[in-house]
Design a protein around this nucleic acid. Sequence first.
DNA 1: TGAACACATGAACGGCTCTTCATGTAGTTC
DNA 2: GAACTACATGAAGAGCCGTTCATGTGTTCA
Lengths: 129, 129
Amino acid sequence: MGHGADAKTTATARERLETVGAADVAATLQALATPSRLRILARLQEGPCAATELADAVGMEQSACSHQLRLLRNLGLVTGERRGRSVIYALYDNHVAELLEQALYHVEHLRLGLRDAPAQAPATAAGAR
Amino acid sequence: MGHGADAKTTATARERLETVGAADVAATLQALATPSRLRILARLQEGPCAATELADAVGMEQSACSHQLRLLRNLGLVTGERRGRSVIYALYDNHVAELLEQALYHVEHLRLGLRDAPAQAPATAAGAR
DNA sequence: TGAACACATGAACGGCTCTTCATGTAGTTC
DNA sequence: GAACTACATGAAGAGCCGTTCATGTGTTCA
């Protein structure tokens, strides 16, 4: 209903994590945990692209790129459909685009060493202090 | 200066990625790419916590937890300061909390198989379709 | 000062991941 | 259908990662 965190349905990140499955979350996020795949996704954010062209754009061998594309596909992050003798790859979703975007955003800031606020705990019954 | 993406200073994700350093971005994101660290960060989002208590909360051995904490610390994602004979760990930043939050959010949606929109390219000269 | 607690660190091992090399399959063109 | 292009796949090797075991450092308290 609301936007971010309502008072009622506020599950802790920890609960949500176990609900979805920590291993699954980790697996998905690992798609963003290597330079090669990061480059692939970043290129795809600019628009769909054929496999060979993609490999060329990110500077990796066709085979290596294909392997990673399969991985990304199995994770449901990208799609690939035939078009003539090419296979056009694209980001699956806008969620993927945003995930990449925000990951980049946060890492850019973290890498600058800027400190926003010393990490405040959510508005829990935090009497203990 | 703006907030998210101004029309003028819009660099492609690919450019930003190389600017920050794809390897560095990957390294940081890899902190979210394993169940153990994911649990650690999720627990810390609820508030600061001593090392042993933390290890207990996420169900891992003290040593293993300590190793991962060092890693997270080196990446600048968490802080740890002595307090008596304990060391209290906390998320470094609100950026870290948000990164975790949004990663969770997107993965929750991706895991549901919900498809928002078939990934639209940014407002480029995307006539080809 | 010595014992007990809290945490950090080093070494080592098993497992996973990414790449490369070689080969296989699908589609087009002649 | 033969040759070529575009992509996928399998096997294998090098390197990295996370855990465990054993031990070390710092702190409190009697």
